[in-house]
Design a protein around this nucleic acid. Structure first.
Lengths: 231, 231
DNA sequence: GAACTAATACTCGATTTCGAGTAATCGAGA
DNA sequence: TCTCGATTACTCGAAATCGAGTATTAGTTC
């Protein structure tokens, strides 16, 4: 899968929109908003115009007319080309068929959990759960509304998917909080002790492992087993 | 939450790494790799060096020495500053406590489902499910391995979380495929008809709604109810 | 009809991001 | 001891990203 010439997902939305009819960039942006697509695809004006320029440069779209309305800036209306339709189809197939590794911010945070005390982590994760729950509620309200208007699900599957992901995040986070609270998370006893040593007695994190028994006691046998830079 | 002066998650990892001990950039990169943090935080050499420079410019880290090994390029060793520790703590709190809206590529794809035929979509989603299942298996193997080495969960929660997300994606996608296959997804009958009209008879998508009864028949009452640019 | 607010329609350039490329050295095998 | 691939350690510039700012007009309210 050679790298896409214009890779911003907004470009994909532009191609999708122009697939319906020719439009000028700002019109595309309002259309995406009225259809709520801006909730699934990040819309930014700066990107919109540069992406349109890049699409034109690569022959995926072409200017079909420029209209001027009084003293307003002149609007360039673009249409999709045959190459553009191919690119869109290829792109959509890739988006649907080939998952691409994406990094969520929470993963980055979880990777550094031991930098905070277990109690602080629990506090923060609880806060996150609350915020996520609020989002779930908002999504569910919207969905109920659309369903009651008989607006077909096919037009909002992306929002359903989003809801599924947020719910999964809540479920995982709840479970993690519980595991930390009850100390059933393997390593959390160690975590508490190590954190205290660093925080209260000013030991450098890197020195903790030089004399594990001193800082952690002997109840943590795996500490002696694992190599310092274990997988 | 004012915008972060250096926003790349890699910068967060750099601060986290230098929190343990002073290092030079390449050393940070290998450490992230041996610990598997590069699986949760995107590591790219170009970004690494520019991010280190930006962190230094903003006083979050400082060069403590430069060593030269024979004819090799000279290595600059950096240490975290007090301001850097604050920034790291603040950042971690934000990552854990305040979910930020992230856009997954699949959402973009789902937003344009009707551009393909239902059959093609099912085919592609099945392909995606297979790829995701392979990832689940890999993750579970790794987890079993780490568990058998008694490597504490606290050091790989981020991978657990990743696994939870992938599983949720599979579950949702499976359900969606089923709904499309059985035509129980509201709108999918409409979808089939609209797609045929566009594909087989060359009607412009934008014209479909001008005479809905003609293209869709009368069994789809909601088509007459909803405004053309419905929410 | 004056004064605002909202909507329209972009522009700009400073920063970020990226990944391919480079160049030296190390180590293992033939 | 020679070779060759892996590892170390970065550099560079093209391209993308962003969001605040600008200028005009339409609509609304008093």
């Amino acid at each position: 899968m050679a790298k896409r010439k214009v890779a911003n997902p907004l470009a994909f939305a532009v191609l999708g929109s122009l697939g319906e009819r020719p439009m000028h960039p700002y019109e595309i942006s309002t259309m995406l908003k009225t259809r709520g697509k801006d909730l699934s695809i990040k819309l930014n004006y700066g990107s919109l115009y540069s992406v349109v320029a890049a699409l034109e440069k690569n022959g995926f779209i072409e200017a079909v007319e420029t209209v001027r309305d009084g003293n307003r800036p002149e609007k360039t209306v673009y249409a999709i080309t045959a190459a553009g339709r191919d690119e869109f189809a290829d792109w959509l197939a890739e988006l649907l068929g080939s998952p691409e590794r994406e990094f969520s911010q929470l993963e980055a945070g979880l990777a550094y959990l031991p930098a905070f005390s277990p109690d602080r982590v629990v506090e923060l994760l609880d806060q996150r759960i609350e915020a996520l729950a609020a989002e779930v509620e908002k999504l569910e309200t919207t969905h109920a509304e659309m369903a009651s208007h008989k607006f077909p699900r096919i037009f909002w599957v992306e929002s359903e998917f989003r809801l599924a992901l947020v719910k999964a995040e809540i479920t995982y986070t709840r479970q993690l909080v519980r595991a930390i609270r009850t100390d059933e998370l393997e390593g959390s006893a160690f975590w508490r002790k190590g954190f205290e040593a660093v925080e209260k007695y000013g030991i450098q994190p890197a020195d903790l492992f030089k004399d594990p028994v001193k800082y952690f006691g002997e109840e943590l046998p795996w500490l002696q087993e694992i190599p310092p830079e274990a997988k």
